[in-house]
């Protein structure tokens, strides 16, 4: 190994002073804040729909879970192809449904690129959430529903007062897993935009990877990964506490 001098906290200071770090951090937070609830909501909705039907439920489950087993590399490339400036989606939006007046440059701007990654993230996670919530829904005792019907609750009230509390353990589990996953988004960003333009679409991990493997600044990258690990740990502790207090 090329000997690297120990320079104390210099690396950490550099991490926080870096302009790009701030951009990247915001990107990661936005990504997580949008994809996590997004996946959970659509997954829960699909699970609720699936819960009531008898035929074809296995078929629907299998098909909806397929995106989850599709590798990130492949899924990212497919989305990149679809969202290309001259790709199918733009053509569809512009010439067929006529909601835009020109090609949207999805992959060329910061928020365009991150949006594509977010759409991919939500698309890929729906199946996982669906399976988990389906199992959880089936655990909610039927008599609770009956009791609430007798009390005169409509569908919405039943959802809020019976379903949600009944599956709250699963909701918290999904929240923890998905938040960790959200901060670890790497392959999709790399394949879709590669961090361009000028690192504006990078997230924490891709920026760290760039620093380590494209500029050779292992110290900086290691400091960044330590900061990330700390943040994730803190988040997990907070969520665990929430879980425990709710149980009480």
């Amino acid at each position: 190994m090329l000997a690297q001098p120990f320079n104390g906290f210099e690396n950490y200071r550099e991490v926080f002073r870096d302009q790009t770090f701030r951009t990247v951090f915001v990107n990661s937070i936005v990504y997580t804040l949008i994809t996590v609830p997004g996946q959970m909501a659509v997954g829960l909705l699909t699970a609720i729909l699936l819960n009531g039907i008898k035929r074809f439920s296995v078929t629907f489950r299998v098909i909806n879970y397929l995106p989850v087993v599709t590798s990130w590399v492949i899924a990212s490339l497919v989305f990149r192809y679809i969202f290309n400036t001259e790709g199918l989606l733009n053509y569809f939006l512009w010439k067929i449904v006529k909601v835009t007046s020109a090609n949207i440059r999805w992959l060329d701007t910061r928020w365009g690129g991150i949006s594509v990654a977010m759409i991919l993230g939500i698309w890929k996670g729906i199946g996982w959430n669906m399976v988990i919530f389906l199992a959880a829904l089936q655990q909610v005792p039927a008599d609770l529903y009956e009791a609430s019907e007798i009390d005169g609750c409509g569908a919405w009230k039943k959802f809020i007062h019976v379903t949600l509390p009944g599956i709250r353990g699963t909701i918290l589990f999904a929240l923890i897993e998905l938040t960790i996953g959200g901060f670890n988004v790497f392959t999709s960003i790399k394949m879709i935009t590669g961090g361009k333009p000028a690192h504006q679409t990078d997230t924490l991990l891709t920026w760290m990877y760039y620093k380590a493997f494209s500029t050779g600044r292992f110290g900086y990258a290691a400091a960044l990964s330590f900061v990330m690990a700390l943040c994730l740990g803190l988040l997990a502790v907070v969520q665990f506490r929430m879980m425990r207090s709710r149980d009480n």
Partner: peptide
């Protein structure tokens, strides 16, 4: 439910079909 599920599933798998 069936209609919603079917519709959702079709839209969902469009990228893979493409």
């Amino acid at each position: 439910r069936y209609i919603l599920l079917a519709l959702g599933t079709v839209i969902f798998t469009l990228p893979m079909i493409y």
